[in-house]
């Protein structure tokens, strides 16, 4: 393993920001794995740190394939992490909305460019992604439907679901989208939590990535058997929204199968405790997302169901 600084940025008042990469193996740029780009992505950084532990052991046993280089970047934006902010500490811009970056541009464009120039050209790119809304996810893998890579590859992670997303205009400046445009097969792995550590989901994400690297002959690893991944078009999943606002309580666990009409949760009045809304499933399927904050506004996505 070689630890190297991929990009540095001076701050007027803090120690220099160093984006650190951990390189395993030598030769062909095979896989790059990127963790936290936002200050609240603790789980994403943690999964990468676990990956580094696993890859160290694999490398020590000589089980990284010849002519294979794997790069892991646990955290791009620890400046924000250290002060409890989600986006860039100074101007609140999102590094994951700045790709492919611009070396002469604004600060976060420069960070994106500095990172992208080092992780471009890999055969595969895996980003530990998070969702903007508070909630729990069933670990899954997602791809942008840019037409540049086969969705079938998502099956190699052995997660329960592989979701294909049609890019929206605001997706065009994300790492995942730009990786694909520059011919890297790009995947987003969702390991449930964001600002807390979920050990079980982290285990599942680490095994899934190892499984993928093994399947693509980059490493030799023993992992627990995975799922036969079900591939789904994101537009075909069902979002269940709150019809009222107040205190939210889920009555279902993610990963459970529900039938149409089943009660998934309740919303009660925040002052007098009266139940004001029952949230029922409008389809039969598997719950893969649940909102997890105690307070809920109206029209908030509180469950997502794979039909």
């Amino acid at each position: 393993m070689k630890k190297q600084i991929l990009y540095s940025l001076k701050s007027p008042y803090r120690e220099q920001l160093d984006v650190i990469g951990f390189r395993f193996g030598h030769g062909k740029k095979s896989a790059a794995i990127v963790g936290a780009m936002r200050g609240n992505e603790v789980q994403q950084m943690y999964v990468c740190s676990r990956m580094i532990q696993e890859l160290k052991k694999i490398e020590a046993k000589g089980l990284i394939a010849e002519d294979t280089e794997i790069m892991v970047i646990p955290c791009v934006n620890y400046y924000s992490m250290n002060i409890g902010k989600r986006f860039w500490a100074m101007d609140n811009t999102d590094i994951n909305r700045m790709f492919p970056g611009y070396s002469l541009g604004e600060t976060t464009q420069r960070i994106a460019d500095g990172l992208f120039s080092k992780i471009q050209g890999y055969e595969c790119g895996i980003q530990l992604a998070s969702f903007y809304q508070q909630g729990n996810f069933l670990p899954h893998v997602k791809m942008m439907d840019t037409g540049f890579a086969s969705p079938e590859l998502m099956k190699d992670f052995g997660l329960q679901f592989g979701i294909l997303r049609k890019p929206r205009p605001y997706d065009t400046t994300t790492l995942n989208y730009n990786w694909q445009i520059w011919e890297t097969k790009a995947f987003s792995v969702y390991a449930n939590a964001t600002d807390v550590i979920d050990e079980n989901a982290a285990d599942e994400a680490v095994y899934a990535i190892l499984r993928f690297l093994d399947k693509h002959d980059m490493i030799s690893a023993n992992t627990p058997p995975g799922y036969i991944t079900k591939l789904i078009d994101e537009s075909k999943t069902k979002q269940i929204r709150s019809e009222a606002s107040g205190i939210f309580k889920s009555s279902i666990e993610i990963g459970k199968r529900v039938e149409r009409g089943d009660v998934l949760g309740i919303i009660s009045d925040p002052f007098d405790g009266e139940i004001i809304s029952e949230i029922r499933s409008t389809v039969s399927g598997t719950v893969y997302f649940e909102y997890c904050s105690p307070l809920i506004n109206s029209n908030t996505v509180c469950f997502k169901i794979i039909k």
């Binding site: 009222a244 606002s245 107040g246 205190i247 925040p270 002052f271 307070l295 809920i296 506004n297 109206s298 029209n299």
Partner: peptide, 10 residues
Amino acid sequence: SAALAVNENL
């Protein structure tokens, strides 16, 4: 308009 969590509308 949308109902916020606690006793208020946006």
